[in-house]
Design a protein around this nucleic acid. Structure first.
Lengths: 338, 338
DNA sequence: TAGATTCGTGCAATCGATTACAAATAGAAA
DNA sequence: TTTCTATTTGTAATCGATTGCACGAATCTA
């Protein structure tokens, strides 16, 4: 029924050895053109397909990389994966996908599973709740290249590809200042995560550079969803000194904020400007399109893949590369007063 | 440097054979508790990880499935993949992702690559431009289970998981009729693809059932993007007999249509209702949220995975299962007159 | 024609894990 | 003490492909 052809089948059919068949298929010079042609023909006729597993076992290279992300169905991450695929697939690599659901335990499981599967490298974005680092050391100890993208941990020997979150925060805030906003608030994710911390610091620096000061009441740390955006606005409305703009470290927060601002009859962008972060697809589709900081996820994926490739090329040389991409502010209606 | 521990290393360390180590690790009954304990301990100490490649080569099962989709960064497909992962990961399976970019050649490449990688099954959505079927036969001939989701071809021995596109078209159109719309137009994708054909047929049937007739000028076949939505409205505006509603087989077309309708000063939903298809995330985020037909992609992924699992369970029995999921109409502002 | 090259092919080990079969050791029964 | 059985362990083949080494034949040189 399941007729998988091996080089032994071909050898038997032609009354030669598997070794000869292998050499013929691999363009080995020590073989006559006649038998080579014969082998290639019968291989095609018998619909032979090389068993990559056997090859991988023999060679020690599986031509497979593991990619670990929190959720595959988040646009940011699926775009990164697309970028990785674009770069690696033409070279014969395959990509195995794992999701952590933001849990450290699952992340450890994933890493072990990928090591068992003998992947040639692991490209990943660290889960939000990861505190231990042992499992990363295991990877390095086995000599498997490890590349972090977007969410990273500082580990010796690990290359990283991130965007400049500080710059993102700075650019967005500066843009709001240039629109004439004076009391710029910041909605932030959990700032124990580097990315949110850096965005916040960029925000602070921009205020400082332009002679504005940070109002503690205007900096809110919250969950990353629409409802949290609503709540944040509710809080702001109770203040004597209300903000007139928001730089949000998430598009979902920004969307929630906008919805609630409208409910309060506040006009955007005339009375209030909003900039989000991530450039989620929906931000540009809205009637009131939302300004946002684009993280070029596809490019990030491309770059992570390239960094990995450099690492395998010189496996004797230990490369530790830190690539930082520049974010791009997409200015849309939610912050365009001009 | 790269210290990968094998059962031979453990055997050497304990002065026993690899066979004994293997038995200890696999809970084989023919082994003394003492050596078993010893082996397990040293295995842990030496940070042993089973080489799944060797296992796969020996057993003929790789515990890996291939998933082929047009684009991984389309929400619909990444959600399906999430559904597949949810079901398969707990059973120790891995998922290899491939993208066709809607090209037949790439699809064939992908399938060959996955067969080479010795996957235990292939779950896929057929590319838009696929006309040949030979490559699917190759898969079946090798005894590798094949499951189509969403986009399918009718092939003996291949199970499919789809949604009832006819029902989706019917329900959406019926809903528009119930809102009082009399001249319902239809924006459709390429109807040589089954899914678009069926949505169109559901649309026709609903009109028929409620005593409305199909106006050829109101049925437009076009590309699947926002610009095409604009153009379709432009065309409609020139008609003497303008439509007062649209059932669109794509959310992007629906969005484009809505944008252009607004430009023409037409009020939605009062003067004109719109329903899209796919329930893309952005449809519910809009201020004027867009009604859409949800295809429950995660469930579709779950189901495809389950169908695959049934198939491998009884590899001797040939199962050909055709699962049809029910679409769910999400009624939002763009079609809510009540 | 004898000896030296070259060329093409076969032999056998290897990658790491599993497993039927054989062998060895233990203990029990007579 | 001898024989038999039960328990544990070892031996070796296997999965499919690659590759260093050796061997034979063909070709070339003198």
């Amino acid at each position: 029924m399941s007729e998988k052809t091996t080089i032994y089948d071909i050898a038997k059919a032609l009354n030669i050895t598997a070794a000869t068949v292998s050499r013929a298929l691999n363009n080995n010079p020590k073989i006559s053109q006649a038998t080579k042609k014969l082998v290639l023909e019968t291989a095609a006729k018998m619909n032979y397909k090389q068993n990559k597993l056997a090859l991988a076992l023999k060679s020690g290279r599986s031509n497979t990389v593991g990619v670990i992300v929190p959720y595959i169905d988040r646009n940011f991450f699926s775009s990164i994966i697309r970028g990785i695929e674009e770069e690696l697939y033409p070279l014969g690599y395959h990509v195995i996908i794992c999701q952590t659901h933001e849990e450290e335990g699952t992340e450890i499981d994933n890493i072990n599973a990928l090591l068992n599967a003998q992947v040639d490298g692991i490209l990943m974005s660290v889960s939000k709740h990861t505190t231990q680092l042992d499992h990363f050391d295991h990877v390095l100890k086995k000599g498997v290249p490890l590349v972090f993208f977007d969410r990273k941990k500082d580990i010796k020997g690990v290359s990283t590809v991130t965007i400049d979150d500080f710059e993102g925060g700075y650019t967005a805030t500066k843009h709001l200042i240039e629109q004439g906003c004076k009391r710029i608030a910041h909605l932030s994710g959990d700032r124990s995560l580097e990315i949110y911390k850096h965005r916040y610091e960029g925000y602070k620096k921009a205020l400082e550079d332009f002679g504005l000061k940070v109002n503690k009441d205007h900096v809110v740390q919250c969950k990353n969803d629409i409802a949290a955006g609503h709540k944040a606005i509710d809080k702001f409305m109770k203040l004597d000194h209300r903000p007139d703009a928001i730089f949000s470290s998430s598009d979902f927060l920004a969307l929630g904020a906008i919805q609630q601002l409208k409910k309060n009859g506040i006009k955007i962008p005339e009375e209030f400007c909003v900039v989000g972060f991530s450039n989620e697809p929906f931000t540009k589709f809205m009637e009131l399109s939302i300004s946002s900081v684009d993280q070029s996820p596809v490019l990030m994926g491309n770059t992570a893949a390239k960094v990995f490739l450099e690492q395998v090329k010189d496996s004797n040389v230990k490369i530790e590369k830190k690539v930082v991409l520049s974010p791009k502010l997409k200015i849309r209606k939610s912050s365009s007063r001009s």
